[in-house]
């Protein structure tokens, strides 16, 4: 108990409370024995409150993830005994043109959707941050996609993309433009999927940006306005830097969303076609695991996906981590 308390004390003295400035004033933030006990109790409460969620997370995420990693070294089709194959599944991935193409396609989809999501989310958030009479209605309309399931959205968009009777091509034809065969053209199908992904993710970005914009002191914006800064200048020099942390967060969240949401969208809208032009990595992984029952190889693909996500998250967060240091 003493060790824990002393450890807690030394930790408390080493790390200043955020924005308190205590780290610069030795003595004022000095821990007492009672604060050490309070820290213990808070730690205990934290553990108690976290335990249910952590247990569920461990059982349903961490353990299966570890098992999947273990399975990636086996050949197993669910029906016969698993056979140890070492790194063979990983070597197979390196030579699997279909897997590499799907990974490439996923990367392209992430790049082409994450940037518009961040940019449009920011712009729309600025737009709906203006307090006017009808703004609640406008905000509700913008947030609508967030309450619609991915599958329902995909079904809806499939109708919109119908080359003959769909709303999009009908509208285009009124303007004298012959719309493409959206979901049946290897050229247009990836774009069609990307549009749906962007549409689905913009509300999340708007919510975060809106919350961040409302934290920026109004006086600062007003002062810039009085100093002659136009809308573009205010957005560029005050608002955009003011939401930088949200931009990091939105980038990570939307990137992860793109990775997983595309499964539902692709599954309903294109099934990876035409000509595998929309076969994203997660869809290929599913096909490998649950249609071909190639569980070992699919586990290796899942491990590769995990490594990609971890690396991507680290890359996106790295500037912020450095800044915090």
């Amino acid at each position: 108990m003493t060790d824990v308390a002393s450890s807690s004390r030394s930790h408390a003295s080493a790390v200043p409370a955020p924005n308190s400035g205590a780290g610069h004033r030795p003595g004022r933030g000095r821990p007492t024995r009672s604060s050490g006990h309070r820290g213990d109790r808070r730690g205990l409460w934290a553990a108690i409150l976290l335990a249910p969620n952590l247990s569920v997370f461990t059982v349903f995420v961490i353990v299966p993830a570890l098992l999947a990693f273990g399975l990636s070294f086996f050949e197993w089709d669910l029906t016969s005994d698993a056979k140890w194959v070492g790194l063979e599944n990983y070597l197979r991935f390196l030579g699997d043109e279909r897997a590499l193409t799907s990974l490439r396609l996923t990367a392209i989809l992430m790049a082409t959707t994450a940037i518009p999501i961040v940019f449009l989310g920011f712009v729309i958030a600025i737009g709906v941050n203006v307090p006017t009479r009808w703004m609640r209605v406008v905000r509700t309309l913008y947030f609508m996609p967030i309450v619609i399931s991915f599958v329902a959205s995909a079904v809806l968009w499939r109708f919109l993309y119908d080359p003959t009777y769909g709303l999009i091509n009908t509208t285009l034809s009124l303007m004298g433009i012959e719309g493409p065969e959206w979901l049946f053209s290897p050229t247009w199908a990836p774009a069609a999927v990307a549009i749906v992904v962007i549409w689905l993710n913009i509300p999340t970005a708007v919510i975060f940006y809106l919350a961040a914009l409302q934290q920026i002191p109004h006086e600062r914006i007003e002062a810039a306005h009085l100093d002659g800064a136009g809308a573009w200048s205010r957005a560029r020099h005050i608002l955009w830097p003011g939401v930088r942390q949200q931009t990091f967060f939105v980038s990570v969240v939307t990137t992860l969303h793109v990775l997983y949401q595309t499964f539902d969208i692709v599954s309903v809208m294109t099934q990876g076609g035409p000509l595998r032009s929309t076969e994203v990595f997660i869809y290929y992984l599913y096909e490998t695991a649950f249609r071909s029952f190639d569980i070992g190889y699919a586990s290796a693909l899942a491990t590769v996906l995990f490594i990609c996500i971890a690396a991507l998250t680290f890359l996106v967060y790295r500037p912020q981590l450095k800044e915090n240091e």
């Binding site: 049946f184 053209s185 290897p186 076609g273 035409p274 000509l275 595998r276």
Partner: peptide, 11 residues
């Protein structure tokens, strides 16, 4: 087979 059919019908 479906991919091959698409190759014929689309490409």
């Amino acid at each position: 087979v479906i991919q091959a059919m698409d190759e014929v019908l689309i490409n």
